[in-house]
């Protein structure tokens, strides 16, 4: 983990407690009470899944990889803690977040290419790079130019060597990290805590059996193992898991945080079962069209 995380703007300004985050969002919603009642939206996690699908669709033809996608997701999440979503055109916000993230992650894309992909992926009528250019100003301004992110992938790479994770375990942990961007975890916990959680889940779940995506039931087993670790560090569980559990118990890692992350992921996988692409799309389209936000 980079020494710089502890002094980072991510830790100082963009890491919240659950209560703080709820309060922030409440403030934003209160200011737009009418809009919020008029245009109900799906669970935030379901929306995040939809956003992720849309971002991936834009990213794929441009060969944009996971890290810029992850950065774009965090930008979108940060932005919507400060600006009520129903006041925006999500298609534009997502395209802009991706455009900005690509520059930050050293994989710059021409603004015209982003515009073309956005138009391809969304039924949207903005057809002008200046829309993205202007939205970029809004995004940067709302984020106070705090654009550098610390992702769990680097911590995972270090853990992989330390614990000699198999290729499958590593792949699974990596995909669990990808999934955590669909939740509030990037705004709640340090990247290394997320990486440890992902590694732990991956080892407990044994990728050969479960495959992808991870299921809630499997993750619940992991939670039990973690519980054992807190209570009596040498009971049950197999060798490999035991080794990890012991290490966790002895390390200075915040166990409560790891448990919280695990729970958050479990509930994501539960909610995922009810995901429906069309519902998200329609409900967004409703306020965008009605309010003329796509013009």
């Amino acid at each position: 983990m980079a020494a710089s995380y502890w002094e980072s703007t991510q830790r100082k300004y963009w890491t919240f407690t659950k209560q703080q985050l709820t309060l922030e969002r409440k403030k934003v919603e209160e200011a737009e009470r009418n809009l919020v009642t008029m245009y109900p939206l799906p669970d935030r996690r379901l929306l995040s899944i939809y956003f992720y699908h849309q971002l991936s669709k834009m990213a794929r033809p441009l060969g944009i990889r996971q890290q810029p996608l992850a950065t774009a997701q965090v930008y979108v999440r940060r932005f919507y803690t400060k600006v009520e979503i129903r006041r925006t055109n999500p298609a534009l916000v997502l395209a802009t977040a991706l455009y900005l993230a690509c520059k930050m992650e050293e994989y710059p894309q021409h603004i015209r290419m982003i515009l073309a992909e956005a138009r391809h992926c969304w039924d949207t009528s903005f057809n002008d790079i200046s829309k993205i250019g202007e939205c970029e100003f809004t995004l940067i301004s709302e984020m106070n130019s705090q654009l550098i992110l610390h992702h769990p992938y680097r911590s995972l790479a270090e853990l992989q060597t330390q614990f000699q994770l198999t290729q499958e375990e590593n792949a699974l942990a990596w995909s669990i990290i990808n999934d955590h961007y669909l939740t509030d975890l990037p705004l709640l916990h340090a990247p290394h805590v997320v990486a440890i959680t992902a590694m732990f889940l991956a080892v407990v779940l044994k990728p050969t059996q479960s495959g992808l995506p991870v299921h809630a039931a499997g993750a619940t087993n992991a939670l039990q193992a973690l519980g054992n670790a807190r209570n009596s560090p040498t009971q049950g569980a197999q060798n490999r898991v035991q080794k990890l559990v012991d290490w966790l118990a002895e390390s200075s890692v915040d166990m409560e945080a790891v448990v919280e992350c695990t729970q958050e992921l479990i509930s994501l996988y539960e909610v995922w079962e009810s995901y429906n692409d069309k519902t998200c799309k329609d409900q967004i389209a409703k306020f965008v069209k009605a309010r003329g936000l796509d013009k």
Partner: peptide, 20 residues
């Protein structure tokens, strides 16, 4: 009109904000 901010300006803004 807005044409998108250059990558080097983005880098500089982000680094200047982060460093102290």
């Amino acid at each position: 009109q807005y044409t998108g901010i250059s990558q080097s300006a983005i880098r500089e803004m982000a680094l200047c904000t982060e460093l102290s």
